[in-house]
Nucleic acid binder design. Structure first.
Lengths: 214, 214
DNA sequence: GTCTATAGGGGGATAGAC
DNA sequence: GTCTATCCCCCTATAGAC
């Protein structure tokens, strides 16, 4: 739609014509959403471009007008997902005064596993892919560093407010939270009620020992 | 080698002829070793049977005499690897009196990541595969339950010896250790010296808070 | 901009010779 | 028991019509 038919010139560059950028973005996001569901269901390598195109309701050739290769599509999705992870951690860390925020983080991770199963499958897929794909590895390492830094900042502020003991550095505590969240996100039986109960117990234990000096 | 040429009958069953079972086992293990390296390098789905056969120095058709399908080969490897994980955790938990054994577990996991990189890549691959392959999922859930149970037993004994406080149940503490180990095994920057240092600090923190009553 | 059709290359698995 | 040769399907990516 909105085709200009009086301009049949082959190249129309650098004179910022509209070109329906909005429609392009909408379609791009539709592809990403389809790719997300497909990759989560079958993994990056077992998912064909045809499957994604079908889910996004366009042709394979058209898909290649939006992403130059399957690898580029994978990377775009990885970056989008890592950003969501960062946002989740930050959001969770803000819930309540700090030692209890630890419980919020772990509890929130478990909640998310129920609500956004695709997100957690994708996360495992990204961890595995990072061991062999350089671009994915870089994106993951960067996101990881950001999350730990953000957590450390939150812990530092909580220490200033006297909500968390000063026996350990903010970095160490942040790392501890990250390891626990990582574990809770990967553990197979976090989908069973027994598994979730145990993880919540761990969260309470950690919150208790992190409290202000005894 | 050792071919019997006077028995050209098609089926030689149930009259337990030698049939060189030993050679068969050797070859089977050579295939598993080749598959392990190949799967770790490229992942289950991106690795072709031709790649594995080449690495094991036999033909694809011959490989199919040992494993009826690629899926069966994957599953055999998964089970072998999960057994190794269990053995590792048990071994690590035995090193030293308990609160310090926590440090041994995390330290040992980091050591292993350096020594057996293939093992850790495979572990991520297994976690991802478990989300879509029922047989792999079952094997993983079973191994996970075993590891947590073994850890809980060790913690319980340590509590009897007064090495660990009784404020928390053995199961909760075991789960905590499992989550940390899981996190340490997945975390991308556990391969950097900064990352390792932080994780060791976490281990010390946990060992300290688990010590016998204050 | 979007499509259909197809190129060009591997993939898993097996038949049949030796 | 092991191999070579091959079947048949599906993959990523592109050419060219509309």
């Amino acid at each position: 739609m909105n085709r200009s038919r009086n301009l049949k010139t082959t190249r129309v560059r650098s004179r910022g014509r509209p070109v329906d950028e909005d429609a392009r973005l909408v379609r791009r996001n539709r592809i990403l959403a389809a790719a997300r569901a497909s990759f989560a269901a079958e993994g990056f390598h077992a998912t064909s471009t045809a499957t994604i195109a079908r889910a996004a309701k366009l042709s394979v050739a058209n898909l290649y007008q939006y992403f130059p290769s399957k690898d580029d599509l994978v990377l775009a999705l990885v970056q989008q997902d890592l950003q969501a992870d960062i946002a989740l951690v930050v959001e969770l860390g803000r819930q309540g005064p700090f030692p209890r925020a630890v419980e919020s983080v772990l509890h929130g991770v478990l909640e998310e596993r129920g609500k956004d199963e695709d997100g957690f499958r994708l996360r495992l897929e990204i961890l595995a892919e990072a061991t062999r794909n350089v671009a994915v590895r870089r994106a993951l390492a960067s996101a990881e560093a950001q999350v730990i830094q953000l957590l450390a900042d939150q812990v530092g502020e909580a220490q200033s407010r006297g909500e968390v003991g000063r026996e350990e550095s903010p970095e160490t505590i942040a790392r501890l939270l990250y390891l626990l969240a990582d574990g809770a996100a990967s553990t197979a039986d976090a989908t069973t009620s027994d598994g979730r109960r145990s993880i919540e117990a761990v969260a309470r234990l950690i919150a208790r020992v992190l409290g202000p000096g005894k």
